[in-house]
Amino acid sequence: MYQLLDPTRFVVFITGATSGFGAAAARRYVAAGGKVIATGRRGDRLEALQQELGADNCHIIELDVRDRAAMERAIAAIPAPFDGINVVLANAGLALGLQPAAEADLDDWQTMIDTNISGLVYTVRLLLPGLIERGGGHVVTLGSVAGEFAYPGGSVYGASKAFVRHFALNLRSDLQGKNVRVTDIEPGLTETEFSLVRFKGDEDKASKPYSGTKAMTAEDIAESIFWVTSLPEHVNVNKIQMMATTQAIGPFDIYREG
């Protein structure tokens, strides 16, 4: 049996750590003995997370990934020992609305593009040089099954996640010889705040996707993130696509007149 990487040596930079996958991943890495830099827009939640995990294990930065200049300043100011980052979890992202394209809110589309694409690109580009200088590491991006399988109302969200998938695969080529691994995690139905954000706080609408079924949890996804980063350095998992057992790919949507 080959030797897994020592999780006590992980120093993980996480975007979108105030809830969902990001918060669950922070807890998983700290539980294994690692350290995390937890970032997000909601300072109160970051403070609660730091109190839970301990300041020696969790450094927090209130930050919006869409603000490139703020990202640059924050990354440059990370103190030791948290500055020895070797895992980057580019997790921040969201979906807004589910209207047909001709009725969708352009501001919602722009927010998804700015967060899911630009914010991810800023995160990865600003942290990659450090990973390379320190001898290697791992970049984990958060895609979605929506990046491969289309559904009504998912036009820009799905397109943004398709970008994430191909960005991750292209990074693999660019990083040959640098000892930096890249994995895209592509979850399906997972019960987090995702739908509550998508439907802008409407709890009735947000609960419907999970009604009568058993969705995955944030902890399920965090465990997969932890696993791929714990594999020996010579092993790179390009992508993991995950669905709840109760979810599958549907039939073709065929429009019929009359």
Score class of each variant (00 low, 15 high):
Leu5Ser: 12
Val12Cys: 15
Ala17Lys: 03
Thr18Pro: 05
Gly22Thr: 11
Tyr29Thr: 03
Val30Leu: 02
Arg41Thr: 12
Ala48Met: 05
Leu49Asp: 04
Gln51Pro: 00
Glu52Thr: 08
Asp56Lys: 15
Ile61Glu: 08
Val65Phe: 03
Arg66Asn: 13
Arg73Asn: 12
Ala74Pro: 07
Ile75Gly: 02
Ala76Thr: 05
Pro79Ser: 08
Ala80Ser: 13
Ala80Pro: 07
Val87Asn: 07
Val88Gln: 13
Leu89Trp: 13
Asn91Thr: 06
Gly93Ser: 09
Leu94Met: 15
Leu98Ser: 14
Pro100Asp: 13
Ala101Tyr: 12
Ala101Phe: 14
Ala102Trp: 13
Ala104Asn: 11
Ala104Ser: 14
Ala104Lys: 11
Asp108Asn: 15
Thr115Ser: 01
Asn116Pro: 03
Leu120Asn: 09
Val121Ile: 14
Arg125Met: 10
Pro129Asp: 02
Pro129Leu: 03
Gly136Pro: 10
Thr141Cys: 14
Gly143Ile: 09
Gly147Pro: 11
Phe149His: 12
Ala150Phe: 11
Ser155Leu: 15
Tyr157Pro: 04
Lys161His: 06
Ala162Gln: 05
Val164Ser: 07
Arg165Ser: 05
His166Phe: 08
Arg172Thr: 12
Arg172Glu: 13
Arg181Gly: 08
Gly188Tyr: 00
Leu189His: 09
Thr192Trp: 00
Thr192Leu: 01
Leu196Asn: 04
Leu196Val: 09
Phe199Val: 10
Gly201Pro: 06
Glu203Thr: 13
Asp204Ile: 01
Ala206His: 01
Pro209Leu: 15
Tyr210Phe: 15
Gly212Asp: 08
Ala215Ile: 00
Met216Ala: 06
Ala218Glu: 02
Asp220Gln: 08
Glu233Gly: 01
Val237Lys: 10
Asn238His: 07
Thr245Ile: 07
Gln247Ser: 07
Ile249Glu: 09
Phe252Leu: 10
Asp253Asn: 08
Ile254Asp: 02
Arg256Pro: 00
Gly258Asn: 13
Gly258Thr: 13
